[in-house]
Design a protein around this nucleic acid. Structure first.
Lengths: 155, 155
DNA sequence: CAATCGTGGAGTTCATATATCCATGATTGC
DNA sequence: GCAATCATGGATATATGAACTCCACGATTG
């Protein structure tokens, strides 16, 4: 009962893109550095997001990724579906049919409720809800994505 | 995002025990056969349940397992805790503290809500809710939680 | 043309869920 | 007491999939 690291990577990468100024892109290296994700693995994650229609990519110099839609129009459920496919909490409830053992599995009801609850939360949560809300004491809000469009890593 | 087979085994084994007539036990072989669980692995599952205080075991001839409490007083949350320990949806939210990357992770709120939702459902679901409700044609409905607090199995 | 991007897929590593085995001790019926 | 029948406990094996790496390739831009 645990969300995959891959899914977490996807969410954080999307958040990173959501923080980009209009028209600017972020490339693999930038996302990798700021989100602390192995760049070679991130490439695979981003491919999923591109194929899933959540992100667009640009090749060549100054290429990179950007969101296809505003952050508040991308739900966690969409991200999950793109990355992991249909939510399946128990093996036995594969492709719509119930457990092979009995036609009317008594557990099915609970797993269904569980699935609905999770999907409900995923559905009503958008990337916009995941953007860092800085309530810094006294200081001015931190400017993010200045200059080249992404935070520089310390090293 | 999937429940382990082991957890499923535990739940189904407990349901099997809940269906036993008062005073009767079920041994490894019986549970294994009826629930289609490898007997050698089931032994390990049952050990967890015994240690966790949900089930009592009897050695020797006519030994086996039985529930320590009525079915409607054993919640799925208790089963989960015994089998898997504290529910942890994302790796980064280990032992109460947040992700190492930022002190105020914006995602934390969502994962928390998700965890609460799942735990809520686990908390309010007891073994009694998982007993097969036979809507046999013509037959009288199975009496649940009467007498000793749980349903009798037909057999 | 050369540098800089993402693309694609094969392949590796690693963790852990799942499963197996066997020696041991407890209990009961005879 | 003796033998059969239980669960116990731990060591070990296998399977599975997540997580990660690598490299050759094509697209794009200055």
């Amino acid at each position: 009962m645990q969300l995959s690291k891959t899914f977490d990577y996807a969410v954080r990468s999307l958040v990173h893109l959501a923080l980009m100024p209009e028209g600017q892109t972020a490339d693999l290296r930038a996302i990798s550095l700021s989100q602390n994700i192995p760049v070679s693995y991130l490439a695979k994650v981003m491919r999923h997001l591109v194929r899933g229609g959540l992100v667009s990519s640009m090749l060549g110099r100054d290429g990179g990724y950007s969101l296809r839609r505003p952050a508040d129009q991308i739900t966690l459920l969409q991200v999950y579906l793109v990355m992991e496919g249909e939510l399946r909490l128990v093996e036995c409830m594969d492709n719509g049919r119930n457990c092979v053992m009995s036609t009317d599995c008594a557990q099915a009801g609970v797993w269904k409720r569980l699935k609905d609850a999770v999907e409900g939360i995923f559905q009503e949560t958008t990337l916009a809800d995941l953007l860092p809300k800085r309530t810094v004491t006294g200081g001015a809000p931190v400017t993010i994505n200045k200059e080249k469009g992404y935070a520089r890593a310390g090293a």
